[in-house]
């Protein structure tokens, strides 16, 4: 029985093992520096913004689709939000912030809807459709801002990114945890989650089983882009501004995390708990690399690229056993 449990979670154990190896590696090189409280607070502060984005993209991947447009869309949405908030600086901050957030999320819904329509109704391959949309959103942002940063966020908003609740819990982390819980619930406990895995595995069979696959694809793109936009809303808070090309490196980083976690873009695969482990592991690597001030930042890009390749090679060689979906405990007993 015990070995069966191990087999079921073997990939999770492998990921935890990888995290331990990474920690040991940096400890060996940097000694106690890796274990200072500040370092870990920094980690907890930094991963939520792209962690949230990754959770959004996860839905797209499980559905067997791809989204390359989410950061460009998120940047456009937040630029619009910041512009609105800047223009109403003299009104009460609370109300302005809420309207600003609503504007950003509204734009994300529209962006997701367009992606979904292109893919589900016009049958454009997801990568092409969303790369085109990426260019459209980036173009709009640059046209609006001339490529400059947009400032003027109320200080109440920029504080969000730097506040520690009860002195130790960063607000971005809290937002991440809430979104993580919602995503978990959606995947594990709702009919939507059930359909998502089935549609992602074989969309044609799902259609032949009287499932509205087009609605599923469109809904998933909207969900993905809205969650990604929330990530961008956290990002502008820590940056205190919005810009057309913020976080563009997150696109590849999110894909890296998902592939590492076993959420392959083929669809129908992957567990959200593995995604969490992969997000944290990647942040530890990022933090660790930053501890070498002499290291040229361009090497970081090299490291990420090499890592993505290694993970891709690994994942294509792994038996699919590791990438099963997670089952609710109650059901597993039945």
């Amino acid at each position: 029985m015990k070995s069966k449990t191990f087999e079921k979670h073997s990939y999770t154990f492998m990921l935890l093992g990888l995290m331990a190896v990474v920690l040991l590696f940096f400890t060996a090189l940097k000694g106690g520096m890796m274990w200072k409280g500040d370092v870990w607070l920094g980690i907890a502060m930094q991963f939520p913004e792209y962690g949230v984005v990754t959770l959004g993209l996860m839905f797209c991947f499980i559905c067997g689709k791809m989204d390359m447009s989410f950061m460009a869309l998120g940047n456009f949405a937040t630029i619009m939000a910041v512009m609105y908030m800047g223009a109403h600086a003299d009104s009460p901050a609370g109300g302005v912030i809420l309207v600003g957030i609503a504007i950003a999320l509204g734009i994300a819904v529209v962006g997701g809807l367009i992606n979904g329509l292109l893919v589900a109704y016009l049958d454009i391959p997801p990568v092409m459709a969303t790369i085109s949309m990426q260019l459209v959103w980036t173009g709009l942002s640059v046209a609006l801002t001339n490529g400059n940063t947009v400032k003027g966020l109320p200080s109440l908003y920029t504080d969000i990114g730097h506040t520690y609740l009860l002195g130790f819990l960063p607000v971005p982390l809290l937002i991440f945890l809430v979104i993580f819980a919602v995503a978990w619930w959606l995947l594990q406990h709702t009919v939507y989650g059930e359909k998502l895995y089935m549609v992602g595995t074989n969309i044609k069979a799902a259609e032949f089983s009287a499932i509205n696959t087009r609605r599923m694809v469109i809904g998933t793109y909207i969900l993905c882009d809205v969650i990604c936009c929330i990530g961008c809303l956290i990002m502008i808070s820590t940056m205190a501004s919005a810009k057309a090309d913020y976080g563009t490196s997150y696109v590849m980083r999110c894909i890296l995390i998902l592939v590492l976690a076993g959420v392959l873009p083929d669809g129908g695969m992957g567990r959200i708990d593995n995604v969490l482990i992969a997000i944290v592991t990647i942040q530890i690597i990022a933090t660790g690399v930053n501890m070498f001030p002499n290291l040229n930042t361009y090497y970081a890009s090299l490291i990420w690229g090499a890592l993505l390749l290694v993970v891709l090679v690994m994942s294509t060689r792994m038996s699919s056993g590791g990438f099963l979906r997670l089952r609710a405990k109650k059901a597993a007993k039945a």
């Binding site: 595995t201 074989n202 032949f208």
Partner: peptide, 9 residues
């Protein structure tokens, strides 16, 4: 295989 089943589920 292509229309009837989600094989990996």
């Amino acid at each position: 295989l292509t229309e009837g089943l989600c094989l990996r589920q």
